[in-house]
Simulated assay, not measured.
Amino acid sequence: MRPIPPGARASRHHLVPRLKGGTHAGTVLLHHICHQAIHARFTEAELARDLADPDALRAEPRLAGFLSWVAGKPPDFHAPTRAARDRTPKWR
């Protein structure tokens, strides 16, 4: 999602969430703030069903605003991430 400079917080994102069978599926290294933003906006089911690909995540409108905002921050920028208001189950 964004460059990860040496010393910046980073974490591995399971492309298919472990709870949805992705324990041995692929992972990608993400800047920690981007990883938090993904999990604040999407359910595990959404990630497994529709967003198991980095390009699909980048193209998702609910993440695009965050990515535009964070692109203007220094590469080592980090801030707490709150749950997004639009993260509601599709069954509602």
Rank of each mutant, 00 (worst) to 15 (best):
M1C: 08
R2V: 12
R2F: 10
P5W: 12
P6M: 07
P6C: 04
G7Y: 11
A8V: 07
A8K: 04
R9K: 14
A10K: 08
S11C: 14
R12F: 15
R12T: 13
H13R: 08
H14P: 11
H14S: 04
L15G: 04
P17I: 10
P17S: 09
P17Y: 14
R18G: 06
R18P: 04
L19K: 06
K20S: 10
T23K: 07
T23W: 02
A25M: 08
G26T: 12
G26H: 11
T27D: 00
L29W: 08
L29V: 07
L29N: 03
H31Q: 06
H31G: 01
I33Y: 02
C34Y: 01
Q36N: 13
A37M: 03
A37R: 04
A37W: 03
H39N: 05
F42C: 09
F42S: 03
T43P: 03
T43W: 04
T43F: 12
T43S: 14
A45C: 03
L47M: 14
A48F: 05
R49E: 15
D50A: 01
L51Y: 09
D53R: 00
D53P: 05
D53F: 00
P54F: 15
A56R: 13
R58H: 15
R58Y: 14
A59K: 06
P61A: 05
R62T: 12
L63A: 03
L63V: 02
A64K: 05
G65I: 03
L67Y: 09
A71V: 11
K73S: 06
P74E: 00
P75N: 10
P75I: 04
D76I: 08
D76R: 08
H78Q: 04
A79P: 04
A79E: 14
P80T: 12
T81Y: 01
A84M: 10
A84T: 12
R85W: 09
D86V: 09
D86R: 10
R87C: 12
T88P: 01
T88Y: 10
W91C: 00
